[in-house]
């Protein structure tokens, strides 16, 4: 057993934060600047989707398009079904015995909800980052290499290259490069979460699902993960559940507002936050309930 490094050896994100933080364009700049905006491609389409836990209907008849290479945020009060929906997109609900669903979730030609759909290759294509950082009790390297070893025929050198690439992409390389073979549990919460993101992108997914990825992090780490989400959207389709409306407005392109299992309103983030069409949405984004 290796000694776990002490927490105080970890470079605190606060120090490096200022330097690494990219100058993010404002929302309106961004929308104008994105070249792909005009040729938006459909990544995932949900049609008449209903989800249940036993008798209880958690999601009622949802229709939604998720666009490729954009960040789509799901917001809404707790228990409104947004996490449930997220977990159906890569069939994580399969491990909940009472969960079942009907309707359709399509990704390209693949019907995700079909029984025959191979969840193994589905989850390779649709990665997931969880609410709480959940690194395996293994070394940092083995954490990132976990997915590639599962899914790819890959040589030692290629694997090392892939691990470095993933860690760089997740903006955590500089902090961990000297301790790749030490336990991942010795990292700080924010580093762990970025490690989990690195682990998710190492398998080369098309879609990244993030279930409140910052809810367990301190503000500085949150900012770093948000920056990362913004960077990653160049390459991945990101669906993010969040409780934090500022977060949704800061880093998403489109937002869907959930209430009691239904989508009340869905649209471009800026429009939804500044000119909501529904009274409920306005009440929620202005903090009247939730």
């Amino acid at each position: 057993m290796k000694d776990e490094p002490k927490m105080d050896n970890v470079a605190t994100p606060k120090k490096t934060h200022g330097m690494l933080k990219p100058k993010r364009p404002t929302l309106s700049q961004r929308n104008d600047a994105s070249p792909e905006k005009n040729e938006q491609k459909l990544a995932i389409r949900l049609e008449d989707f209903n989800a249940y836990y036993g008798e209880f209907q958690a999601i009622k008849n949802i229709n939604l398009d998720i666009m490729a290479r954009q960040v789509t945020a799901f917001i809404g009060p707790s228990g409104c079904g947004k996490s449930t929906l997220l977990k159906w997109i890569n069939r994580m609900n399969d491990i909940v015995p009472s969960a079942w669903a009907k309707g359709s979730i399509r990704m390209g030609d693949l019907e995700i909800l079909k029984k025959q759909t191979d969840v193994v290759s589905l989850r390779r294509r649709v990665g997931m980052v969880f609410q709480k950082p959940n690194p395996f009790p293994k070394s940092i390297f083995d954490n990132v290499a976990f997915g590639p070893r599962l899914h790819f025929k890959i040589g030692k050198q290629d694997l090392a290259a892939l691990v470095e690439w993933s860690l760089r992409k997740a903006a955590v390389w500089d902090e961990v490069k000297d301790r790749l073979h030490k336990s991942a549990l010795g990292l700080s919460g924010g580093q762990q979460q970025r490690l989990c993101i690195a682990r998710a992108i190492a398998t080369g997914p098309e879609v990244l699902l993030m279930d409140e990825p910052c809810s367990a992090l301190d503000p500085a780490s949150t900012a770093r993960v948000e920056d990362l989400v913004y960077e990653l959207r160049e390459q991945y389709t990101i669906v993010m559940v969040t409780h934090n409306m500022q977060q949704a407005s800061r880093c998403s392109d489109r937002t869907a507002f959930f209430f009691e299992g239904e989508i009340v309103e869905e649209g471009e983030t800026e429009q939804l936050f500044t000119r909501p069409k529904h009274q409920k949405t306005e009440d929620y984004v202005s903090g009247k309930f939730g």
Partner: peptide, 21 residues
Amino acid sequence: PRSIREAAFGMGATRWQVVRK
């Protein structure tokens, strides 16, 4: 912890791989 299992499932491991690895 349950979260470790979820992480492995989320990476596309089969149930046996989750257990084994």
